Computed example of a mutant assay.
Amino acid sequence: MARLFAICASGVAASLLAACSPAAEAPVGEPPLAGATIGGPFELTGANGKTVRWEDFRGKYTIVYFGFAYCPDICPTDMQRMAQGLSEFTEANPTLGANVQPIFVTIDPERDTPEVVAEFTSAFSDRIIGLTGSADQVKAAADAFRVFYQRGETQPGGGYLMDHTNITYLFGPAGEPIATLPTDEGYEAVAEELAKWVR
C-alpha cells in the first residue's frame, strides 16, 4: 500500500449469525436481520468528489462497512476478508456476484479525504466504493446504520485512535437489512453467507 495506514483503534466486535448453505439451496427461514431498523438515507462523497446517496444502490445487494483508513489491524482485516469472500462468491456465481456492491464508509472524515479513502479501498478491491463527507454527514449515516464511533486515545506525534463498531452488513435490493457477514471467521465464511442470501 502506497501510504502507511498507521494509527487506528480496535473496534467493538459485534457479529450475529453465520450460516452455511450451498448457492443452489434456498435460505431456510427469515434473514437474521429481517425487520431490523438498520440503514437509511445518507448523502456522502465518493472518491471522485461526487455526491453518493443510499438510494443510488437500489436494485443491488450491498455490503456496508464503517471504518477508517488509518487502521492497522481490524479494519484492513475485515475489508480483506470481505473482499476475498465476495470474490470467491462471484467466481462461483458470476451473475449474482455482479449484483453485490461493497461500500466502505469512513468514521474519521477529518483525516479520510476522498483521495485517502480511494487509496485505502483500492488496496482490497476495485469494486469497493469508498465514502466520506462532513462530520455531520458521517454521523447521520453512522446513526442510521446503528454504528457507534468516537475518537479514542491520542498517540505520540499527534495521531489518535478511533473506537468504533465493526460490523459488516448485508442489505437486499430494496435496502432492507438481511444479515451480518462473519469477517471474524474468514473469507470462506463470508462467501458462504453471501451464497445463502444473495438470489
Rank of each mutant, 00 (worst) to 15 (best):
P22K: 12
P22Y: 10
A23H: 10
A24Q: 11
A26K: 11
A26I: 05
P27M: 04
V28C: 04
G29H: 09
G29A: 11
P31Y: 02
P32C: 09
A34N: 02
T37Y: 04
G39I: 03
G40E: 01
G40F: 00
F42W: 04
F42A: 02
A47E: 12
N48V: 09
K50D: 08
K50H: 13
T51W: 00
R53H: 08
E55K: 00
K60L: 10
I63A: 08
V64A: 13
Y65Q: 10
Y65T: 07
F66K: 07
G67D: 13
F68G: 01
A69L: 13
A69K: 11
Y70W: 14
Y70G: 08
Y70I: 09
C71R: 08
C71Y: 10
C75F: 08
D78A: 14
D78V: 05
D78I: 04
Q80R: 11
Q80A: 15
R81A: 13
M82C: 07
G85E: 13
S87M: 09
S87F: 08
E88W: 07
E88M: 15
T90P: 03
E91A: 14
E91T: 11
A92E: 09
N93E: 12
P94N: 08
P94L: 12
L96F: 04
G97R: 12
N99M: 14
V100Q: 03
Q101W: 01
I103R: 03
V105S: 05
I107V: 15
D108E: 15
R111E: 05
